[in-house]
């Protein structure tokens, strides 16, 4: 039993027939070849597979592709626009917010989701917002710095606009 789904991924419309059991993360990785989204566990605890679904951070390993039918999805590949890194990506680069990089796409998207909702997060807010994303390399401090740095940049940007 294959089911047709239509989704928008990183701004591009996609239509595919998928097996109902196909996990969203495998749809992204194996069908769309967007391998920036990673798989780190099977119990929804590590957050490596985090993507934005209609703007919200979700764990794509705990969603069926069919559940995402009609949704607008952003993966790490779709975050930079016109060759310009997203401020959270810049933050991770400048503050050394990553080492092996495996948790990084999920961690960045969790940071983006946080800043979309709360442009002035405290350190505790940040640590709470990324509590669903495990990192075994960095000790988290540089990740917190990265998100703080992105928050500052986004504020400057919005100030410039207004």
């Amino acid at each position: 039993m294959a089911i047709r789904i239509a989704v928008k991924v990183n701004g591009r419309a996609q239509v595919h027939d998928v097996e109902p059991r196909l996990l969203l993360v495998h749809y992204l990785r194996d069908v769309l070849s967007l391998t920036g989204t990673h798989v780190g566990c099977e119990t929804s605890l590590c957050g490596a597979c985090t993507v934005l679904l209609d703007g919200q951070a979700v764990k794509s390993c705990t969603l069926l592709a069919v559940q995402a039918d009609g949704a607008d999805i952003t993966t790490i590949e779709g975050l930079a626009r016109d060759g310009q890194l997203h401020p959270v990506q810049e933050g991770f680069w400048e503050e050394h917010g990553l080492q092996c990089g495996y948790c990084t796409p999920g961690m960045i998207l969790a940071g983006v989701a946080l800043l979309n909702e709360n442009p002035n997060p405290s350190e505790a807010d940040i640590r709470r917002a990324i509590a669903g994303n495990l990192c075994r390399c960095t000790g988290y401090q540089h990740i917190v710095n990265a998100i703080q740095s992105a928050a500052r940049k986004l504020k400057q940007k919005s100030r410039k606009k207004s």
Binding site: S44, Q56, V58, L63, R128
Partner: peptide, 9 residues
């Protein structure tokens, strides 16, 4: 409950 991602779904 859980974490942000879990609470979103």
């Amino acid at each position: 409950i859980g974490d942000v991602q879990v609470r979103n779904r």
